[in-house]
Simulated scan of single mutants.
Amino acid sequence: MKEEFYTRGRWLNWINKIKESGFTLQESDEDPSAAVFVYAMDDVVLACLKVIARCEHGTITKEDAISAIDEIRDIVSERDGSLGEDASLMLESLNASLTAVFISSQRYINGGYDAKTPLLEMVKKAVAAEEADLMEESLSILSEIGARVIGGESLPEEVYSDLPYCLTAELLDGIDAISAAQIGDDSYKEDDGSEDDGEDS
């Protein structure tokens, strides 16, 4: 039976938690209701890392791993019109960040990415590509940055200095979430699928 790494029920649970949070956009970044978006992102990131771990263990093929990431992406792209304007805007931002998680995961699985150019230089190239309206090029560069972070590298602090407010910055939030998830609960690395605990809901 094909394994589900993430389910619609799981995502709907986060959508319901967002509704219950009563989130509104405020001047303060310390709004406790915003935490639910961070937790939702972490949950999705860990699901993607679990796919990668299974692929590295040889439990699933590269093709199945790529397909599994696509399925997760399809699930979290669903919208709920009853969230309200503020929560919907925040969810759009979350999905932009998750885009980087998905493309980075798939680039890492496929391999063959630039592993030598300094990450700071690559970030600058991604920003420049976006400013030149070459979004596909920017996304390609970001996917390589994310793949290297999945591989164990860290984004240098200088990345965030002088970084303009742009889509690339939001996408980098997703890559940063990958790094944070790897520092946190790394039990996914040992999960080879031999004892599936069924925690998909």
Rank of each mutant, 00 (worst) to 15 (best):
M1W: 07
E3L: 09
E3I: 11
E4K: 13
Y6N: 08
T7N: 15
T7A: 13
R8K: 15
R8P: 15
G9K: 07
N13T: 09
W14Y: 15
I15N: 09
I15F: 09
I15Q: 08
I18E: 03
E20N: 13
G22H: 04
G22N: 06
L25F: 08
L25A: 07
L25S: 10
L25P: 01
Q26I: 03
Q26T: 08
Q26S: 06
E27K: 15
S28G: 13
D29L: 14
D29F: 12
D29E: 13
E30I: 15
P32L: 09
V36R: 12
V36E: 12
Y39R: 14
Y39P: 11
A40V: 05
A40Y: 03
M41R: 07
D43G: 07
D43K: 08
V44Y: 04
V44C: 08
V45F: 01
V45N: 01
L46H: 06
A47P: 07
C48Y: 04
C48F: 04
L49S: 07
E56C: 08
E56S: 07
G58N: 06
I60P: 07
I60Y: 05
K62A: 14
A65C: 05
I66S: 09
A68V: 05
D70K: 04
I72L: 04
D74L: 11
V76A: 10
S77Y: 12
S82Y: 06
G84Q: 00
G84F: 00
D86I: 02
D86E: 04
A87V: 02
S88R: 10
E92K: 03
N95R: 09
S97W: 00
S97L: 00
T99S: 05
V101A: 01
F102Q: 00
F102V: 00
I103R: 04
I103E: 03
Q106E: 04
N110F: 08
G111K: 02
Y113S: 01
Y113A: 00
D114K: 13
A115D: 11
A115V: 09
K116F: 11
K116T: 14
T117H: 13
T117F: 09
L120V: 07
M122A: 06
V123D: 00
K124R: 05
K125C: 07
A129T: 02
A129P: 01
A129V: 05
A129S: 09
E131S: 11
E131H: 08
A132R: 15
L134A: 08
L134F: 08
E136L: 11
E137R: 14
E137Y: 10
I141V: 10
L142Y: 00
E144I: 06
G146D: 03
G146P: 00
V149Q: 05
L155E: 01
E157K: 10
E157N: 11
E158R: 08
Y160R: 07
D162S: 10
P164R: 09
C166Q: 07
L167Q: 15
T168R: 00
A169K: 11
E170F: 11
L171Y: 06
G174S: 03
I175C: 03
Q182P: 02
Q182K: 14
G184E: 06
D185Q: 05
S187W: 09
E190H: 11
D192L: 13
E195S: 08
D197T: 12
G198Q: 13
E199G: 04
E199I: 04
